[in-house]
């Protein structure tokens, strides 16, 4: 009896292990491929010149493979998008979980889920056809496809991520903390600011960073509305060419295993490390707050 049960346990364990191992191996293979195709570019340029080089002219003769303008483009749109999306996402989460009456809560939650469900190409289309002409006219710009436009659309994309993860974190704050606060004569507002948000901070930080990671890796939107200029921007209304846009736009025309091809894969490697850094940061922050014994996800 006991022996068969044990064997069954082992079989189940094995099965789960296989599934887990399969996905890890698959990911590892993708990574190996990324590095195999990207690293050869460093025979032509040094990593420093590649990352900090100011000129991205991969099709010139001789070509220049400096992706600094692309990195700046990615970072600029990500940070401006975050500056817009973080307050919006976090505050809407606070409103939904702590303040809104039940009926409004349901409506808001569905609206946010709806936004989360919009394909990014549709958002990009919105940026192109509505936001861009409006910006161009209102601010009298040469083009409406620029940093501001891309940041706004990316912010719209990041809000649902930030809001829904923050909301979960806020819900996870034990009711006892709230009752303790009210019993000491705190108002609702004081309770939210001084007890609920601090207790959910680890989850909220995770939400923020995952939202940013989402924005930095997003391709379609920046391809459509960032304007595509591979130059270091000087104003918020300049066009940029974030890394994912560059890869998506150029991969089709880069000859197989040419310098340009390897350079695009190497750009992918940089993007990979950036996103990884965001995820590690999210992990670190959520663990750090957890040790204090506060409520977390």
């Amino acid at each position: 009896m006991a022996a068969t049960r044990q064997r069954k346990e082992q079989a189940i364990q094995m099965l789960f292990f296989l599934f887990a191992a399969f996905s890890i191996v698959l990911l590892a293979l993708i990574l190996i491929f990324l590095f195999r195709e990207g690293l050869p570019i460093f025979k032509t340029v040094t990593p420093i010149d590649f990352i900090f080089g100011k000129f991205w002219y991969p099709t010139y003769e001789p070509p220049e493979y400096g992706i600094w303008p692309l990195i700046v483009g990615s970072l600029v749109v990500t940070f401006i998008a975050s500056a817009i999306a973080v307050p919006l996402g976090v505050l809407s989460a606070v409103y939904i979980s702590e303040i809104a009456p039940a009926s409004i809560k349901e409506i808001l939650k569905s609206v946010i889920e709806l936004i989360a469900g919009i394909p990014s190409v549709v958002l990009g289309f919105f940026g192109m056809v509505i936001l861009a002409p409006w910006m161009q006219e209102t601010f009298d710009l040469p083009t409406g496809l620029n940093i501001m436009n891309a940041s706004l659309v990316l912010a719209l994309m990041a809000v649902p991520t930030i809001s829904s993860i923050s909301e979960d974190a806020l819900y996870a704050v034990p009711n006892e903390f709230k009752e303790a606060s009210y019993a000491l004569g705190a108002t609702k507002y004081e309770t939210i600011v001084k007890v609920i948000i601090p207790a959910a901070l680890s989850g909220i930080s995770t939400a923020v960073i995952l939202g940013m990671a989402r924005a930095i890796g997003e391709t379609m939107v920046v391809l459509m509305v960032a304007g595509g200029a591979a130059a270091i921007p000087e104003s918020l209304f300049d066009s940029v060419r974030p890394m994912p846009a560059s890869i998506a736009a150029e991969m089709g025309e880069a000859p197989f295993r040419s310098g340009h091809y390897h350079a695009l894969f190497a750009t992918g490697i940089v993007l990979f490390f950036l996103t990884l850094a965001f995820n590690l940061l999210a992990d670190y922050i959520s663990n750090r707050f957890k040790e204090v014994g506060s409520a977390t996800l």
Binding site: E176, E179, A180
Partner: peptide
């Protein structure tokens, strides 16, 4: 509630320092 204090069945300190737990109420006032 400021004049009528309450102690709950389950201990419910805030996830803050001991000092800040005690000063939470007085700071509000």
């Amino acid at each position: 509630r400021r004049r009528i204090g309450m102690v709950f069945q389950k201990p419910n300190p805030f996830p803050k320092s001991i000092f800040n737990n005690i000063t939470y109420g007085p700071r509000l006032t």
